[in-house]
């Protein structure tokens, strides 16, 4: 459902959108498929205010402390963190590779920018993902319209600013269509 399931409490600071936290664990032994992915992803909660965000966030393990390949996702309520969701189908994502040890801090800065509406791209942002892997970690931020270059450039520039990325950091944009076609993510 696309409706709001939670609301800010009395006196709390509302967010522009409600956001849902999701967690997924990769099972490397099984081939990637939509069905496996849906079985492995868990919705862990939705927040509607700054206060609820912190309350929730402070109870989560820092992504950098997770063991084994796993992902945290933070998506606008009602948007599933899947390529096939109607809000994602025509979209894509910016991907940033991180060496080990940086994921927790960068993830926090990225989601603060997202829930604080720092990207200034209207309805375009769908959600964000941190992916913990063996050799390196990845951040990604998903938007609705991969063909909208003004938007994707603005998202890239905002990310560089809020994460204070070195100029040498490689950022790659990938459409979900391409991800679906080559059936790969990281």
């Amino acid at each position: 459902s696309r409706g709001k399931t939670v609301s800010p409490g009395p006196g709390e600071h509302p967010l522009q959108y409600n956001y849902t936290f999701w967690y997924s664990r990769r099972s490397p032994s099984r081939p990637a498929s939509t069905q496996n992915y849906e079985q492995n992803i868990r919705r862990i909660g939705t927040v509607a205010s700054v206060e609820q965000f912190w309350k929730f966030y402070s109870h989560l393990v820092h992504p950098g402390d997770l063991s084994g390949p796993s992902d945290f996702h933070l998506f606008k309520e009602g948007i599933k963190p899947m390529w096939e969701d109607e809000c994602n189908r025509s979209g894509g994502k910016w991907i940033i590779r991180l060496r080990k040890g940086l994921a927790s801090r960068f993830w926090e800065n990225m989601i603060l920018a997202m829930v604080g509406e720092q990207f200034m791209v209207g309805e375009e942002i769908c959600g964000a993902v941190v992916s913990i892997r063996f050799q390196e970690d990845f951040l990604s931020i998903w938007n609705r319209t991969s063909s909208d270059q003004t938007t994707t450039s603005r998202i890239r520039d905002t990310l560089r600013r809020v994460l204070n990325l070195p100029a040498s950091t490689i950022m790659e944009y990938k459409t979900h269509n391409d991800s679906l076609r080559d059936n790969s993510s990281f």
Partner: peptide, 21 residues
């Protein structure tokens, strides 16, 4: 319409507010 914008500093300050504990 109006968008609800929060900068990083505000959000981090809110983290320590009693209601968010």
């Amino acid at each position: 319409g109006t968008r609800i914008i929060y900068d990083r500093k505000f959000l981090l300050d809110m983290r320590n507010s009693p209601i968010a504990q």
